[in-house]
């Protein structure tokens, strides 16, 4: 018994749910507790769970982008959100807000999205690297005979 049917089936259900929850956390951070860091960690966990159930190769495939690339993009978005106010004569990292109907959207949200992507990338770099450096760390990633 090298792989668990229960884990695999549960992962199929849980991974999308956890991902959805992570986006909820990210957006909730706008006004209440939550935010990009915790959201990113949760999203990272969902991919890690997928990696434990189906192996890192499958998880990497489902991620589409290399985690390093994700980190770069996230960092870039965060820097950009910090720089945006400068063009309007503000200071670094100053919040700019736009009213969109009843919704207030601003650079802090953009910053959080950057952090979100950065943290996902970072978590997955660590998780994938750990497993690929020590094959067999996640027993499920060995294909069933």
């Amino acid at each position: 018994m090298r792989f668990s049917v229960i884990l695999r089936t549960a992962a199929r259900l849980l991974v999308p749910l956890i991902l959805l929850f992570s986006v909820f956390l990210l957006l909730r951070g706008h006004n209440e507790t939550g935010g990009g860091f915790i959201g990113g960690l949760v999203a990272g966990i969902s991919f890690a769970l997928y990696a434990i159930a189906y192996g890192t190769a499958a998880s990497r495939e489902s991620l589409r982008a290399r985690p390093q690339r994700l980190m770069a993009v996230g960092l870039g978005i965060a820097v950009l959100s910090g720089l945006l106010p400068l063009f309007g004569g503000g200071t670094l990292l100053e919040g700019i807000w736009v009213k969109w109907g009843g919704l207030k959207v601003g650079t802090p949200v953009l910053f959080d999205v950057g952090v979100y992507l950065l943290v996902i990338g970072l978590t997955l770099v660590i998780v994938y690297e750990l497993e690929e450096h020590n094959p067999g760390l996640f027993p499920q990633s060995v294909a069933p005979e």
């Binding site: 690339r69 770069a72 870039g76 820097v79 720089l83 670094l92």
Partner: peptide
């Protein structure tokens, strides 16, 4: 003055992102 003061941080930050990409 503000931009000038933060440039020594912004330049390597952008460069780090670009180097990662």
């Amino acid at each position: 003055a503000h931009l000038l003061l933060i440039l020594p941080l912004i330049i390597p930050f952008v460069a780090a992102v670009a180097a990662l990409l």
